[in-house]
Simulated assay, not measured.
Amino acid sequence: MSQNHKNPLQVKVSFKAVIISASLTALLVSSGCATSSLLESSNRVSTTSVKTPLSEDQIVAFGRPAQALPKMPNATMVIVGEKNSCVLSQGGTEMVNLLSNLTPKNIQVSNDMSFYVPNNDGYFQGEMKLSYAKLKDEFKRSDYQFFLQNNGRDCTTDSDERINAQRFCFSVPVKGAIYPQVSNLSMIQSQYRALSKPYTVSFYTQIKQDEVIRSGKSSAEKLVLLPFALAFDVVTFPLQLLDN
């Protein structure tokens, strides 16, 4: 018999050895990949953010600065709070227009005035929302023209429908800065009628969850004001009503 010929038993054993070797190689490779994946997973940084409250304040009045504010030339509206003042540098003109031209008793300002402070450096952004409702037969053509010009949208509720009323909603994007309590707060509180329902304004930021875990601190933070912000006088709007 030729020496180049292997008997069937040798061929079978050799074939099994190849299969076992290949299987072990695949197992080691997959195990290595799994280990690598596990290491990468353990080193991966979470990007989940936590909404972190900074401050909440009771609103006393809506008005405008009595004098020009340094570094805030476009300040057109102020939300006067008991602790701080929210000076609007964007969206204030639109809000003044709405609050000045709509009948105060028919205005409802959303109580969800929650503003985002991205870097907790005194600058905030968000939206101010209000609605305006009257009986349908009290609306005039000029009212609808005003709503069209100021992006008002029909948001009539079932409750409005039942009393034959119609409601329009406005949402104004705003930006601004947080100042200390206004200088003439006590005068405003003593000489002007209080708002007809409690309104609050709150501020929040976003903190990455992994930063909170690494620092071992609570996610609670403190509101930071602008370093150049000084107290100032404010002139209130003639709408200390905002009836509900």
Rank of each mutant, 00 (worst) to 15 (best):
L102C: 04
A68Q: 14
P104T: 04
V45C: 05
T93R: 13
K105S: 09
Y204W: 09
A68H: 07
L9M: 10
V96H: 02
A177H: 06
R167T: 02
N120Q: 06
V18T: 12
Y132M: 00
T52E: 04
S100N: 12
R167W: 04
T205P: 01
S42H: 09
P227M: 01
C33Q: 12
Y116R: 04
S110T: 03
N244E: 14
V11W: 08
L38D: 13
A26K: 10
S183Y: 07
P53S: 06
V78R: 00
L24C: 12
P104D: 01
L39P: 00
T52F: 08
M187A: 09
P238R: 14
N106L: 06
A231G: 11
L54D: 03
S114W: 07
N101Y: 11
Q67L: 10
L223E: 03
Q166R: 14
E56V: 13
D112I: 12
T25D: 10
V212Y: 03
S21G: 14
S114I: 00
A22F: 02
V224P: 02
A61N: 03
N151C: 07
V60H: 00
Y132V: 00
I207N: 03
E211S: 12
D57M: 04
F15D: 12
V18R: 15
C86R: 01
R44Y: 09
D121T: 04
E56P: 03
R162Q: 15
P8A: 15
S89Y: 02
I79M: 01
Q67F: 09
D233I: 01
F170I: 03
Y123Q: 13
Q90G: 06
Q206S: 15
F168H: 09
E127R: 10
I207S: 11
K217V: 08
T35K: 14
T35D: 10
T103N: 12
G176D: 02
Q209I: 15
L230V: 11
L28R: 05
L223N: 02
P180V: 00
R167Y: 06
F115M: 03
V224S: 09
E82P: 00
N7S: 08
L239E: 06
L102R: 09
E221R: 09
F124G: 01
N120A: 05
K83S: 11
P65D: 04
P8H: 15
A26W: 11
R64I: 09
S41I: 01
S36Y: 13
S171A: 08
P238N: 15
S55K: 12
M128S: 11
Q58N: 15
T103P: 07
Q166E: 15
L99K: 05
Q90H: 11
D143K: 05
